[in-house]
Design a protein around this nucleic acid. Structure first.
Lengths: 196, 196
DNA sequence: GTCTATACACCGATAGAC
DNA sequence: GTCTATCGGTGTATAGAC
């Protein structure tokens, strides 16, 4: 009897094409703005006609969904790596967490908008794509808990503080570091406030 | 000789129609989302056909521009009123400023997005519409300066902190008060940090 | 799996009658 | 100042040949 080959070359190629489309979508989103992403633009970049994309993604929102999942998976990976070698002091831990998240967010505006803002109104992430986002937040919460920060309000304040600096940086000084330079000070201010 | 009447009824009516269109645009923006605002929707609400709007606004972006100016004028009025009767203590002043701005922003998501986020990409506010925004920021800066807060970095931190709470409130708990309740604490934390 | 062709629904904006 | 009619464009998505 003929056995199945242990590599499925068709599936591999299909997966590669999917990744290629995804990468093109990110390029287009960065260039034209996330909300102005069009299937025409994506198709052009991968050398296809727009309808051909439907062989790989059911709809435009399905494409957004894959991008959303990818973005948060990347974030989870970065934050996991960050948590793997944290400094000794509690403030050092907070600084490291905040800096890693800040830098990741500021690195790519389109990605940040898709992850954290509701700039694409018709789009709701699927449970699968949302999973790495939840996992990232859990990782963050657990790390704070190990420092003794368990109060919901404390976590909320920390999130708002970091998010505010990121927003201000992206909105008022994109590419610069005017708010990035305030990050350590802000973290220390928070640490002081929660008695660390 | 015939003198000019001291009331120009034509101009009055024209101005009233303009205001009516503007109000309808805000209603539509709140309902459909700011980015999804269409001239058809606005025209429907004022009982006109879409082309008729062009007798009052040169383009869709001109409509956005008028809305932008109106939003910041309202904000300036609210903040001016706030500054007119401030409490005695420095921390009270900070709390009052932050609370007034927070509540104003959270009150209307569409207005907040037009004022503070770049959700409509093709739109750049004109100098005239931008003026009340600058004036509001000046008012804020001057009030902080009277408390002894003159360092650019201190002002930036205060702005980012307040903005972060507003963003978190609107994004994660719209209509609620989960982050609103943290405002006084956040302000005190900031005051402590700048030695007030 | 990719193509051509096209359907279908929108949009902003203009021309010209009244 | 408002209307009708329409232009020229955008976009997502589907049908069917290859």
């Amino acid at each position: 009897m003929l056995g199945k080959p242990n590599r499925d070359r068709v599936a591999e190629r299909r997966s590669a094409t999917r990744s290629e489309i995804l990468a093109a979508a990110w390029d287009a989103a960065r260039e034209c703005g996330l909300a102005n992403l069009t299937l025409r633009e994506v198709a052009d970049r991968v050398g296809m006609r727009p309808p051909s994309l439907y062989s790989h993604f059911d709809s435009k929102n399905a494409l957004y969904d894959a991008m959303f999942g990818q973005a948060w998976s990347e974030c989870l990976a970065v934050m996991t790596e960050c948590v793997r070698n944290l400094p000794d002091t509690p403030r050092g831990v907070l600084r490291s967490l905040a800096a890693t998240f800040f830098d990741f967010c500021v690195e790519d505006l389109a990605r940040f908008q898709l992850m954290n803002q509701r700039i694409v109104i018709d789009f709701e992430p699927s449970a699968d794509s949302y999973a790495p986002a939840v996992e990232t937040l859990d990782l963050f919460r657990n790390t704070l808990a190990e420092l003794g920060i368990r109060d919901q309000q404390d976590v909320d304040l920390c999130v708002a503080l970091t998010g505010g600096l990121i927003d201000a940086q992206l909105a008022n000084d994109p590419g610069g570091d005017r708010w990035r330079r305030l990050l350590d000070r802000a973290v220390d201010m928070f640490a002081e406030n929660v008695g660390l």
